[in-house]
Write a protein that binds this DNA or RNA. Sequence first.
RNA 1: GGGCUCGUAGCUCAGUCCGGCAGAGCAACUGGCUCUUAACCAGUAGGUCGAGGGUUCAAAUCCCUCCGAGCCCGCCA
Length: 494
Amino acid sequence: MHWAHPEANDAIEERGTEHVVACGISPSGPIHYGNFREVATADLLNRAIQRSEAESDLIWISDDFDPLRKVYPFLPEDFEEHVGKPLSEVPDPDGCHDFYSRHFEEPFLETLPVLGVEPEVKRASEMYASGGYSDAVATALYRTDEIAAIIEEVTGRQLPKGWRPFNPICEECGRFADPAGDEYHCGHGHTGNLSEARGKLPWRVDWPARWKILGVTVEPFGKDHAASGGSYDTGRRIARQVFGYEPPHPVVYEQIGLKGEGEMSSSAGVAVTPRQLLRVMEPELMRFVIASTRPKKHIELDLGHGLPRLYDEVDRAEEAWRNDDPGVEATAFALSTVNDVDEMDLPFSHAVNAVQVDPDDPLKVLRRTHHSDHGPRVEGRLRRARNWVEDYAPESFLFSVQEETPDVELTGEQKRVLEAVAEAVERGGGGDEVQNAIYETGNSLDMALGDAFAAVYRALLGQDDGPRAGPFVAALDRDFVIKRFRDVAGTSDG
RNA sequence: GGGCUCGUAGCUCAGUCCGGCAGAGCAACUGGCUCUUAACCAGUAGGUCGAGGGUUCAAAUCCCUCCGAGCCCGCCA
């Protein structure tokens, strides 16, 4: 059983057949694949609920009314002056959007439909500005003592004197200030009246308030919120006791790490955005990696050696899905589909070879090797293979067919291997025949087979190893191969 | 101090929610084969399921205690 279905069924048992699945992100920096796990998890739950014949909507909330916490490494130093202001009121560091949060939100939101996620988008700044939180703020302030008691009891910490469940924005400098009774004191010396100030609920109160305002019934969140005494612990009690709302069914998920670099974190500089990943991963694969892993399990994304394997895995799952296999892998793929996908027979590793054999026209290579050779999906996979070769492929996957005959020294035996291969190709032989010719010639000459294969790679690539020899030679232009081998072997007519 | 995850074959991990003969891939070994960007086929071997206790006709699986590793919370969100 795939994990999304028991979760969906639990939610339906707890809350009935009408659901709102919520997720959200604080756009304080580039929104990366680790953040996408939250949205993807929410989308998977949303789909699973719908597959169980219940109604469900998906909401994505931008926490763009949170303060800018510090000058992150990717910001200019003079952003110090904006620390403490709401993200929706800080300028765009690159100057291309109206303000800070939009700059990071937009590229992320643009990729969501490509990844098959189309949530209703809400923004905290707009919800506060339009009065959506008015009742909640009034309730929270009226019941300050109860909220304070819950937070102090659950977290075991002591709230300061004059604490209020409201973070006011200083009317003079535009930064969040500390409440002190019915007033607030800004760090820059201004004192104002709390009841007249703009502002927001602190996170631990904001979250439960939002559940009620939006009718949230299911919500995935990171394990940082899930720790004992964390914000879900306080939130569930505040929701029930203060707002009279049953908290959503929680689904806790783990972080995503980049192999060799640690957990993704935009402030630590370890972050790959969905847009960057789309250069090398198909949308279905980006979903599948998340869908096929239980949320509480850590994901370690390996874009190097691991990527061809991931493609093989998702291709297998896709095939199982096409065969109506009821297993988890097929279900994970079913939940990962984005658009109708053409059936295709082109392993990623072969695409990687094809774009290197003939960078100008890899389709020609695919025709020679009898793989799928047309359609948007093939083109997409070739494009991603090319990007992978440029950005992530380990050395051992790289080669380049030398346009000019390389100046290589070969033994007499090796030259006879090349001549034998040339003859096999001349006779119209394919991969098997080429592989055979190398093997048999090498054996009949009583030479080390490694040297026989090395001759082929040296003549074509100028290096001692390369892709599996038979199919590789067969993927090349026939006349080119014959000429090259005879040139190198010194058996050409000219 | 608290929470979560992990601990199962040499390695990487399924299986644990919902108890029912201990599993897969890779590695090893045997045989075959066309040594190839982690080649292919057939077969063999490989285990105190981290430790201990409990529940049960039956425990890798449920409960309790403990050990080890990692992450998170105990500022803000």
